[in-house]
């Protein structure tokens, strides 16, 4: 049972990292990333491929972060002058293209078989028995580190400029802010966090395949952010927990309703996630935990 909770908390940590990324891209900069799953895949595969080549875990993680950030910057560059709709479709198209590459470039990615036996960092030092607990601790430390890093970014002049651009990029441009560079940077920072999450994903599961980086990952991440209140990193932790509880809780659904097949139960869970997302958008557009929005832009501005 402890093992189960450790696993759940590790999942939540990964979800929180993805949510952080969306919060800076969407919440702060107003840039929609519907291709989150693709960037996540880039991070995971970069880390996995390098580790299989014998690169140590930390370097592989750094490489995953840098690669994902760079690709994010490139993708955002294509649509930077346009309305958010265009970025949404471009990132989605990018994500689909990533999946195609993962499935078809077997020499690099193993195709649909994926990559197995990804070496775990520090496993010799920690030992196999306590590794899960160690990994969770590492994830929590990383989540905290990213939280404080992003918080300082949000409170910095850069963060304020970002919000100014989100509200009105024409006004921001006339104030002398380089809108293009700001937005590319914001998207790249988000990409870096997604890359980190991807690397952790690869190391935790030690096995990855293209199916893990499909659209549902993006939906989960958006769900976490929306439930937690867009732009609020503290609310996000609660949002990610809610989504995880929904996902895990409904996993037991099939025990209670035996006439559903496993496939049907899985579909039902996803239907509930999608319905939940829509209901929150309708009834609680500012998220379920708006009272926790201590690190929201307003407070950040007045305290800085």
């Amino acid at each position: 049972m402890t093992g189960y909770f450790v696993a759940i908390l590790t999942f939540v940590s990964l979800a929180v990292l993805l949510g952080f990324a969306l919060n800076i891209q969407w919440g702060q900069a107003g840039m929609i990333n519907f291709g989150l799953a693709g960037f996540y895949g880039v991070g995971a595969y970069t880390a996995a491929i390098l580790s299989k080549q014998g690169v140590d875990g930390v370097s592989a993680t750094v490489a995953a972060i840098v690669t994902t950030a760079a690709i994010s910057a490139l993708v955002s560059l294509a649509t930077i002058k346009l309305r958010e709709d265009y970025l949404a479709i471009t990132t989605l198209a990018f994500s689909e293209s990533v999946r195609l590459v993962l499935m078809n470039e077997t020499w690099l990615t193993g195709g649909t078989n994926g990559i197995r036996d990804i070496p775990r960092p520090f496993v010799d030092l920690v030992g196999g028995e306590r590794y899960e607990l160690f990994f969770l601790a590492a994830c929590i430390v990383l989540v905290a580190a990213v939280y404080f890093l992003l918080d300082s970014v949000i409170r910095s002049p850069f963060g304020r400029a970002l919000r100014a651009v989100r509200e009105d990029d024409v006004v921001a441009a006339t104030l002398g802010k380089d809108v293009l560079a700001l937005r590319v940077k914001a998207f790249a920072i988000g990409g870096a966090v997604i890359g980190l999450a991807g690397a952790l994903h690869a190391f935790y599961f030690t096995y990855i395949d293209p199916g893990e980086f499909a659209g549902f990952v993006t939906v989960y991440a958006f769900m976490s952010v929306i439930v937690g209140g867009k732009g609020s990193n503290r609310g996000l932790v609660m949002g990610a927990c809610t989504v995880m509880i929904l996902l895990e809780g409904t996993r037991f659904l099939k025990d209670f309703v035996p006439f559903f097949t496993a496939q049907q139960a899985a579909s039902l869970r996803l239907i509930m996630i999608g319905t939940g997302l829509i209901l929150v958008l309708i009834f609680r557009p500012s998220g379920l935990s708006s009272e926790y929005r201590l690190s929201s832009p307003k407070t950040a501005d007045t305290t800085s």
């Binding site: 107003g30 659209g215 579909s267 239907i271 997302l277 829509i278 958008l281 557009p285």
Partner: peptide, 26 residues
């Protein structure tokens, strides 16, 4: 959806897609 800016509606439509697809799978 109150205060429906185009981004909120866009995200909602993704939710709709997710539900429709999984209803079919179900």
């Amino acid at each position: 959806i109150r205060n429906a800016d185009h981004i909120t509606l866009l995200v909602a439509s993704m939710g709709v897609a997710f539900v429709l697809e999984n209803v079919i799978r179900f």
